[in-house]
Design a protein around this nucleic acid. Structure first.
Lengths: 188, 188
DNA sequence: GATGTGGATGACACTTGGTGTCATCACGCT
DNA sequence: AGCGTGATGACACCAAGTGTCATCCACATC
């Protein structure tokens, strides 16, 4: 490794993030991103399936984290509690990358195509969590509903977190959102 | 009206649904759809913003239905109950179009791009429901969470409904999903 | 040190989605 | 008859994405 400049993927990601941020997703061509990274359009598509995917490379890591944490929860834990533990772990991971997360989030918020991609990544995440719950013995409508609820809680809390002026920790916002959900779905 | 064949939009929708169903979304070009409808590619894009949107023309109607129903719920109804009434109304609407819904659903299930579009439509729907709840005096984290939970319940029930062999009514499946969600989020 | 192999990249042509622009056509109105 | 108008067609164009082949250079092997 080293015949060419190293870390082609990372350079492409960096260039894309910069250009999307400066001129917007629509006003950036793949050829421009590649050029900034010292590569060609064709090579961009060897690393990323499409122009949007360059912003979502990390989602596999997040998915793995969620699945690991759900699986690692004590056997006695209720489904929602197992998932809550995973949310905590994810929160810790994002807390260290707040700058990056906010930058990336602004880009996505400005473009519907990117929001679509984000939504399907979250859906995939929910699917993986549901599968992890099933392996814990949770049956199917419950597994899906728990997973989806957890992702919704995460999403709502995350949006508040990146948008807020005061720096409340993400973990706290997640806890609040989860409580809200419980209150809202409580009988009577 | 009448200078050209009437209902250009409807013809395009019908042609698209047929072709997407026969050869798949990817293996259908916009030019082909337009040709089947006796029109040109350019005209297709005058009626639909993109190749996917032709399958989602009805989503505005659904959104309106949800908003109307939520707003019409008795003032005394809890947020989740107001939304549950809307789910019932939506279920009734789909029950009359089961054939079409299933056909359309198979097409979407076979293609990630279409799933992305579906997800953002559902997100938009959730946003509209949340706004309707806010107008009922529900505050913000609760409004969003209630709306998202309702859409999730609807989605889960809907998928079971179109996939099932026995014809349980959608309303019933929605009720069950809602109960499951309540059970899963209950304290202790 | 020559040779060969393989993985990463470039070059290039091509299809298709999507858009801007102008021409055309038939209808209703005056 | 002439005019305006809204829907459509024709055409050119850009950018995303893909298939294919050539190229290049690190590395192992002889």
């Amino acid at each position: 490794m080293g015949r060419w400049q190293p870390d082609a993927r990372g350079r492409l990601q960096e260039a894309a993030l910069t250009l999307y941020g400066e001129r917007g997703f629509d006003n950036t061509t793949v050829a421009e991103i590649a050029e900034h990274a010292g590569l060609t359009k064709r090579t961009f598509f060897r690393y990323f399936a499409d122009k949007r995917e360059v912003l979502f490379w990390g989602s596999a890591v997040l998915e793995e984290l969620f699945v690991t944490e759900v699986s690692a929860a004590p056997e006695s834990a209720a489904p929602l509690d197992a998932v809550a533990a995973a949310l905590d772990a994810a929160a810790a991971m994002f807390e260290e990358r707040r700058e990056f997360a906010a930058r990336r989030r602004r880009i996505i918020a400005a473009n519907p195509e990117l929001q679509e991609r984000e939504l399907i990544k979250l859906a995939s995440l929910a699917g993986a969590v549901a599968e992890a719950l099933r392996r814990r013995g949770v049956d199917d409508p419950a597994a899906i509903l728990t997973a989806e609820a957890a992702i919704t809680v995460f999403r709502v809390a995350f949006e508040r977190w990146v948008d807020q002026a005061d720096h409340q920790p993400l973990q706290r916002l997640i806890g609040e959102s989860l409580e809200q959900l419980r209150a809202v779905t409580a009988h009577r």
